[in-house]
Design a protein around this nucleic acid. Structure first.
Lengths: 115, 115
DNA sequence: CCTGTATTCAACCTAATAGTTATCAACCAA
DNA sequence: TTGGTTGATAACTATTAGGTTGAATACAGG
């Protein structure tokens, strides 16, 4: 995958297993075994997936006895959002139109709502 | 890459060349040669990148004489946005606090707003 | 110290990516 | 029909992704 941060982040997200692990972590920190539980896959494979996520800063690891609980770090998702936001106008016509509508109403004043 | 649509879309986006081509298309339709121009890469390679983008529906092709002008189709980005939106609260603290606030108000009932 | 639990690391395999060059096809224009 | 331009396809190659198994490490408890 390419060297820039955004590419690496998107690449990390482009795998359902890794997204699943993020979803799990969104509900709270979890150990590797807990994260592995839903998947029919060796722990080593899970460990690798986690390394990818850690590599782009989406996950951090703590330590507690022999466990290395993982924590979600969503900050890199900001970059994804920022990129995506530039394209919003292309996919959400109605939102665009709603935006214009609200702008229009704002300019017209609250006393002038349609219906 | 995995079979699901979202994974494929994210994968397609996880390449700076492909994102660059989308950025170019965001300014208007373009031929393959025009899309290739900024890159030090064979046309065949560009063609392949385009095929990836077309494969996930991010780009469509028209025809005009010997040209196959490409067009941006941003609809698949909706899915990305929808996925991302679930994580917004993790990076946007203030929005999170607003969310909690709204939850609190909802639980308390409308008659019981603070202040 | 020994054992069990949790996790990582190393070596290996296979399939897919991302690039190459060379060939082919479609179209316009003379 | 012969070119010239535009683009797609095929065949090949190197690298990486993502999985495996088996050994190594780190820690807690008896």
């Amino acid at each position: 995958m390419a060297g820039d941060r955004l590419s690496a982040t998107l690449f990390a997200l482009a795998d359902p297993t890794r997204r699943g692990m993020l979803a799990r972590l969104a509900q709270g920190d979890a150990t590797v075994s807990e994260l592995a539980e839903p998947y029919d896959m060796s722990l080593a494979a899970i460990s690798k997936h986690l390394k990818v996520l850690e590599g782009v800063g989406l996950v951090s690891r703590g330590r507690e006895a022999q466990w290395r609980p993982r924590h979600l770090e969503a900050e890199p998702l900001k970059d994804v959002w920022a990129w995506l936001d530039d394209y919003r106008r292309f996919w959400d016509r109605s939102l665009d139109m709603l935006g214009r509508h609200l702008e229009t109403m704002k300019q017209a004043g609250p006393e002038n709502s349609d219906r």
